[in-house]
Amino acid sequence: MAEALLFYTLAALILGLGVMVVSARSAVHSVLFLVVNFLLVAVLYVTLNAEFVAVIQVLVYAGGIVVLYLFVVMLVNLKQAPERFSDPRRLARSGLVLGGVVLALIVVVVSSSLRAGAAPEGTLSGFGTPFTSGNTEQLGWVLYTSYLIPFELASMLLLVAMVGAIVLAKRHLGE
């Protein structure tokens, strides 16, 4: 029951965010919807017992690829409406809100760490607990035995793509 509820909620959010990625008028909004979409897909992977793939999804997709997209959107679409953010009152208001959020975070972290200081040693974190054979270990084993050559080929592909991207984005060749 809970599993079905989780699946339907995630599916509805993923599909809705997919529609918003495609239909958003501004490319920046599209990228931001894409981040949330990727994070929700990562949650879906966790429900499917694929923890390593979920972590890779967050690190590579939501962390790396989407930032790359955001850079390109900012590089390419700078012509449109930077004035909307130059209103000083709006700036001051958003600065106030952000400052308040940071202050609240600091208070929460400091108070929780002060409270945790009284707790007995060794129960605070997962460090030191034995690592039983999990998804990551199994996947690493398969990846480095049965799929070793495809793995090396993928690394070569990434190297070639990196060099290609640098060559393409470089301004003047041969100088």
Binding site: V60, G64, I65, Y69, V72, M162, A165, I166, A169
Partner: peptide, 16 residues
């Protein structure tokens, strides 16, 4: 995911 990263890097390089 590896191929998608390569595709994004090269594609966005072409766009720029």
């Amino acid at each position: 995911i590896a191929v998608a990263a390569a595709e994004a890097a090269v594609g966005l390089g072409i766009i720029i």
